[in-house]
Every structure is written in structure tokens, then in C-alpha cells.
């Protein structure tokens, strides 16, 4: 092996340190040199095809027409326009989004053409609803209703349970998504005495099986149906709410505005219910999605909410 490392004939730079340390002057390997030159050529080719040099606030865009990219964009007014630009990552992304929409189209079409009930019976179609619905729900609904649709007491209803203020059928849910909802309850602090509010609150707690003062509750029940408080106008004679106006069912175990599950003591529970009656509500606003999502998307989202989240009726 040693004949190859014959150091006597190796070229050095002539520098010597400490009498014996020398600097070898071997030529670079040829493959390396060529690789180096090829990178030069590569950059030139690159400039022709891709955006490269910054110039002021602008940049070179490659030779026009050599590497252009065409995609379809949707204008804010819903109009579809075709755009052609020099190659860039953003347009590449748009092209991929176009392809995605194209790929999903046949499934969306299938959902759009079917009655709601049949979609749920098609297990394979439901897989599509599950995955696409999840993304749509996350993008549009989850900011209020939370990722798992569990809602937030005092803010947005739980969509996974079986209680629907505005109705839980496919048609109800679709209507809610299309047009939005506007929940309202007037404040009663001007109309009722504090004692009366306490009585009503006890009655509300009793109906849900929570600890309460029986005496006060009895008075509350009468008050509920009287013209003074007139609760029954909205919540109904049996206090089960009315789907037409979205008034709450006060007899079930589900709480949306008064945080009963989060209240530790009986007094706190009472105070929560009283707070709602006293102050009323005007925050039950759900925006309309008709302009933002296409009818097919809304239909799919409806099935997702009804069946995948599992609360539908």
C-alpha cells in the first residue's frame, strides 16, 4: 500500500513550520472541480426558470413564458378567474388547491345529489364526510363551538349532545348554518324584584333536578306563568322551550348560559341562574354561512354535525 503514499514526490506549497510541518499542494480531485463548475451552470439555468435576483422592491422573474404557472382563483364576489404568472410558490400552492377541489368534486356532487338520510347510510361516503367535515368544522365552526363541538358554557352550545334549541333535524341544522341565529332574552332587573328573581331561579333549578328551595320554587312556578314575568311566552307552558324562537328547554340537564356544572355550591348555582335572568342575553349570535360556504359544503357540514358529531335528531 505504501507505494501510493510516496511523500517524497508530493508537491508542497514550500511553507515549513517547526522544521517539519509542511503544507501539501495536491490538486483538487477532478470530479470535485467539475462538480463545482456544474453548479455555476446550474445557477444560470435556475435564473432563467425561477425568481432569483432581488432588484429594489422587485425581483427577476425568469424568462417570461419559460416556466409559467396557471391556476384558477375565486374572486371575493365568487367569480372564477384564470391567472397565469411566472413560477412562484404561492401559485404552485393555488394549483394544488385547484387539484384538490377537482379531486373532491365528485364526492361533493354525490353528497349534494342525495337526500340527507341516505348519506348517513353510505358508510364509505360517510368516511369522506368525516374527514372533510372535520377540516371544515375546524376552519369555520371550532372557534366558537370548540374543536370537538363540545361548546362553551356562556358562549356557544354543545353540538354533540341531544339538545337543540333551534331543532336538531337535518333541515333545522342546515337552516341554522345557512342563515345564522340570533338568540335573545330580555333582562328582568327592571321588571322584577330581586326576591321574584330568586323564586324564578329556584324554580329553574328544580326543573333540572338541582338543589333548590321548595317554597321559593313554588312561587317561582306561579310567577313563570304569570303576566308579570311572562316567561312562558318564550319558554312555553311546560318550560321546554320553543324551537321556532330558539328558547332554551329549562327542564333538561343541559346548561348553556348559566354555568351550573362549573358551580360548586348551591348558592353559586342559584347566583348563576339569577345572573342570567337579571341581565338577560343578547350574545346568542351565530353568523350566517350562506355567502362563505357553497351549498354543497353546507350540506356536507350539516351531515357532519348531525351524524359525525352525533348529536342530530
Amino acid at each position: 500500500m505504501s507505494q501510493d503514499n510516496n511523500t517524497n514526490t508530493t508537491k508542497t506549497t514550500g511553507h515549513v513550520w517547526d522544521n517539519d510541518l509542511q503544507e501539501l499542494d495536491n490538486p483538487l480531485p477532478r470530479w470535485w472541480i467539475w462538480g463545482f463548475y456544474i453548479t455555476f451552470l446550474f445557477t444560470i439555468v435556475y435564473w432563467l426558470f425561477y425568481p432569483a435576483w432581488p432588484i429594489g422592491n422587485n425581483y427577476t422573474k425568469g424568462v417570461p413564458g419559460l416556466n409559467s404557472i396557471t391556476y384558477t382563483a375565486t374572486q371575493p364576489n365568487g367569480e372564477q378567474v384564470e391567472k397565469t404568472t411566472h413560477w412562484n410558490m404561492r401559485s404552485k400552492f393555488m394549483v394544488e388547491m385547484n387539484e384538490l377541489q377537482e379531486a373532491q368534486k365528485k364526492w361533493f356532487d354525490k353528497v349534494a345529489a342525495m337526500p340527507f338520510e341516505d348519506v348517513q347510510k353510505d358508510a364509505e361516503l360517510m368516511q369522506f364526510v368525516n374527514s372533510v367535515g372535520k377540516t371544515m368544522f375546524t376552519d369555520n365552526c371550532a372557534p366558537c363551538h370548540q374543536q370537538g363541538a363540545q361548546g362553551k358554557i356562556g358562549f356557544s352550545p354543545n353540538l354533540a349532545d341531544d339538545h337543540w334549541q333551534y331543532g336538531g333535524t337535518y333541515q333545522n341544522i342546515e337552516e341554522t348554518i345557512v342563515a345564522g341565529r340570533n338568540g335573545y332574552m330580555p333582562p328582568f332587573k327592571e321588571v322584577l324584584q330581586d326576591e321574584q328573581i330568586t323564586q324564578l331561579a329556584n324554580y329553574v333549578l328544580e326543573m333540572s333536578g338541582e338543589p333548590h328551595d321548595a317554597e321559593a320554587s313554588k312561587a317561582g312556578a306561579a310567577l313563570f306563568r304569570s303576566e308579570t314575568a311572562a316567561c312562558f311566552y318564550c319558554h312555553g307552558e311546560n318550560a321546554q322551550g320553543k324551537i321556532q324562537m330558539g328558547s332554551a328547554n329549562l327542564t333538561d340537564k343541559i346548561w348553556l348560559w348559566a354555568d351550573i356544572p362549573g358551580s360548586k355550591t348551591d348558592a353559586a348555582k342559584l347566583a348563576e341562574v339569577k345572573r342570567v335572568i337579571t341581565g338577560g342575553l343578547n350574545r346568542g349570535v351565530m353568523p350566517a354561512w350562506s355567502g362563505r360556504l357553497s351549498p354543497a359544503q353546507i350540506k356536507l357540514l350539516t351531515v357532519y354535525v348531525h351524524d359525525s358529531l352525533g348529536g342530530g335528531k
Binding site: G148, N158, D162, I254, G311
Partner: peptide, 18 residues
């Protein structure tokens, strides 16, 4: 199991897991 939320209370007080 669907973990968000882990369980849901229904209107009659029963529990649902998904």
C-alpha cells in the same frame, strides 16, 4: 375514543361517549 370532549351529558342526565 373521541377525546374532545371525553363525554357528553345528554338532556336526561345520561352520558354519551363517542
Amino acid at each position: 375514543q373521541v377525546r374532545q370532549p371525553l363525554f357528553i351529558m345528554l338532556s336526561d342526565g345520561s352520558y354519551r361517549n363517542r
